[in-house]
Design a protein around this nucleic acid. Structure first.
Lengths: 135, 135
DNA sequence: GTATTACCCTATTTAATTAGTAGGATTTAC
DNA sequence: GTAAATCCTACTAATTAAATAGGGTAATAC
């Protein structure tokens, strides 16, 4: 299940991308227009800023704005930053790999085998879609 | 993230499928051989029985056994029974559809649009893989 | 320079879900 | 009858997600 964090993050990014200009948009506006708790959204946008997807301007007239073209913002990056691993089990994760403690042999593990295919298909979608594709 | 329930269920099914014959195998054996809590596995196998994937025999010499050829057991059915919806958001789920309460218009929703693609790719994998493919 | 705006950050609380446990009832083989 | 096994309900513990609280800090308009 997709977390609200990711869902809200995607909606916020979409909202910013839809604006013609790239002027800073205050969090409050984004939150209100998308039915998101403002405080919750704050932390989400902060994460996205650290990821390098958007930047912010403080003070009056400040807010958040994209620093890349929507067509350059890959879903892989957004999902990994907000949701975490794309893989459904750590033992098939590229960026968050971890060994299962209950599984003696990864190679012969049926779950591993299946989830590898699922990961690849998800990765195929996320890496071939950008923010521009969601508009 | 894949739940342990699903993970254990898949491992148990694999274990049963690997046996040459289709004699009942007691839960205890399946649990032990796969490092699964026996009590937890009980409820998982019960679910799979209700789904029609396997059957059980009570009493001494009893246990669980497959009632279909592994090549006839689709991953879509197993995943839906144990994990629930394949879709990552209810608004793109085929079998567990639900409207988002925060989203005014599904058609124009960017999250909806992306998750539709993700669902389709996952469905493609799950519906083209059977238990036999995991062995 | 000052007031205002809005980002920045940490900690806490609440709610929901998942994972696992407990205990007993029922069925069957021998 | 007894032992071995499934079946079933309810409860508890642990983890994670979601949201809230509250203040701190920086930048900007005027």
């Amino acid at each position: 299940m997709l977390s609200k964090k990711t869902k809200y993050g995607l909606k916020a990014l979409t909202y910013l991308a839809q604006k013609e200009d790239r002027n800073p948009i205050p969090i409050g506006e984004v939150a209100q227009q998308n039915n998101i708790s403002q405080k919750f959204l704050e932390s989400i946008l902060l994460t996205l800023r650290r990821t390098g997807v958007l930047s912010s301007k403080k003070g009056k007239g400040g807010g958040y704005y994209l620093i890349k073209e929507p067509s350059k913002i890959l879903m892989t990056d957004v999902i990994r930053a907000l949701e975490g691993p794309i893989a459904m089990v750590p033992c098939v994760s590229l960026n968050f790999y971890e060994k299962c403690d209950d599984c003696p042999d990864e190679v012969s593990c049926s779950v591993h085998k299946l989830m590898l295919k699922v990961r690849d298909s998800a990765l195929e979608i996320y890496s071939s879609n950008t923010l521009a594709d969601l508009l």
